[in-house]
Design a protein around this nucleic acid. Sequence first.
DNA 1: ATAAACCTTGGAGTTTAATCTAAGGTCAAG
DNA 2: CTTGACCTTAGATTAAACTCCAAGGTTTAT
Lengths: 153, 153
Amino acid sequence: MYRIGELSALYDIKADTLRFYEKHGLLSPSSRSDSGYRLYNHSDSERLKFILRAKAVGFSLNDIADLLSIEVDKSNRACAEVKSLVDSKLEQVEAKLAELQHFATSLKSLSNTCCGGPDSAEHCSILEALESSDKHIIAKKEHHHFAHSGHKD
Amino acid sequence: MYRIGELSALYDIKADTLRFYEKHGLLSPSSRSDSGYRLYNHSDSERLKFILRAKAVGFSLNDIADLLSIEVDKSNRACAEVKSLVDSKLEQVEAKLAELQHFATSLKSLSNTCCGGPDSAEHCSILEALESSDKHIIAKKEHHHFAHSGHKD
DNA sequence: ATAAACCTTGGAGTTTAATCTAAGGTCAAG
DNA sequence: CTTGACCTTAGATTAAACTCCAAGGTTTAT
């Protein structure tokens, strides 16, 4: 059992943040001491970890409340309603994944081209790197065929 | 060339948001009309796309300003300073990727177990699904050997 | 040439997610 | 038995990211 100060220290957040999450229905301590102190157990701690991870990848506290509300009735009853929620969140997650993979590729290529390679930089900004990673896909189709194609600005 | 209303409509944001981004140094129109209207070109539009994508995957506007500031001097001069910025952003992106993959796996397993399978639900919340996806990795090592192996919590 | 739909600015207001303050109760150590 | 670190509550303040408003100029269509 953790008191509010212990749990907040564990995740490097403020005790106030935990009270804030409680007020907004995201995380309540599973019990209280005789004198009214909040007491969090392991499961509360796992729930907090989830909240913080979800937040880190761009979900709002409302989104997270939705995710946490996915508590399917064991008797298979609530499944239909829940499935659409899960699937819509899964779509969001997969869209974010695709974006991030794009970013990662661009940052890697930026890092290699600008700072690792023997030549002077050709891709010189994250934007150019992103554009060139798009072009790379097209270039494959056109078999890397860069003639003097009139580039009008 | 887009006017502010056209560009904002294109990305389903408010014109005010574009003025806000301009005030905060994220995106300025490449020119103005005679009467002072903002005029955005294709490259401005690409920059906006980048901003919105970065935002969607959990970067703050400050983070995004950092990313956009990665404009390496063609002469290879600024590379050293820039490389550490790129690499630290890459680390952030890869951490987010790992989190999201975790989420995606859990949501998929939740969807399958609860709503697709012939059996009644066993994983009944996103939290249990996340926990069980951790266990799954351990289970692989033990060659899917679910005997009564004393599971001490 | 005048209305409707757009644009300009500066500044105020809103939402989300915390973070701080004040006034007081609790608990372990000296 | 009191000092200091911790906890309680309610409510005020902050910061980021918009979002709206007022007063006025511009463009386009009739």
